[in-house]
Design a protein around this nucleic acid. Structure first.
Lengths: 139, 139
DNA sequence: GTGTTTGCAAAGTGTTTGCAATTTA
DNA sequence: TAAATTGCAAACACTTTGCAAACAC
């Protein structure tokens, strides 16, 4: 089995993305990528960083999330007007969103099939198709 | 037999929804429901009201949109983090969203088919499934 | 050293709220 | 008249920005 090297993993990701591996970016990358299929908001990630004794400002968390999104290390998901979610799973897949807990979860890749998609107007192209199964707690 | 009115008037809609037909609500209902498949933000609707010489505050537009949403006269659509869209088409259907123009359009009802939907956890129920085809302009 | 990144606080955007004044029934 | 609704401005939540100080190379 391959050895897991979390620290250099984060370092490699940043290097490959052309992002300077600063203390803050390394720490956030570690928090994000050391486990799989994470769905965070800026505030959640900032809280986790503080809990891990990483001194980082909320502004830097926002900047970093957007840089990671640009660099295709993350995917921004719009499910909730007023806050942005970032998904560490960048493969093609869809989501379940619990409107009560505001928890966002992946749906296993390739499990959903779509038919009857509309023709796209000339001069446009599909950038992404999102399926969001919105659930709520009953009773 | 004059019981079915093919074109629901704004007044009837408000009465059926149990909403007092105030000057503002009537005017907004007219703007919204006199044509079909409209997708508005609060700001757009407010602008249209002002253009039509209807004196109404932005706060009232927000309140009214939410009341209409509660009353099932409208459907709120989340496609853009940071602003809410309201769709006058309340039947089951999906959307195309142009990320450049931020224009939201209906996909004809029943044209999209979905297979392989996930099982829902106990204690939860599906409140809605949204398919959003995100497009951008190519150059 | 030089250019990049950070943190802070301030500003910005979209939305909601408290409350007195107004309107509706 | 009583209750509902409105408009205003202030509050709010989330996000972005300007810029001086700190940092990476």
């Amino acid at each position: 089995m391959d050895k897991v090297r979390p620290y250099s993993h984060a370092l490699d990701r940043l290097r490959n993305a052309g992002l300077r591996p600063t203390r803050q970016r390394l720490a956030l990358a570690k928090l994000l990528f050391d486990s799989h299929d994470r769905h965070v908001t800026a505030e959640i990630l900032h809280g986790e960083a503080l809990d891990a004794n990483v001194r980082v400002s909320l502004a830097t968390v926002y900047n970093t999330l957007h840089q990671f999104n640009e660099a295709n290390l993350l995917r921004e998901i719009v499910v909730d007007s007023g806050r942005s979610y970032f998904d560490t799973n960048i493969s093609d897949h869809h989501h379940i969103f619990n409107e009560d807990s505001r928890e966002l979860m992946d749906i296993e890749e390739d499990s959903i099939g779509l038919t009857g998609l509309p023709a796209i107007a000339a001069g446009q192209e599909v950038s992404r198709i999102d399926v969001i199964v919105r659930v709520k707690n009953n009773r």
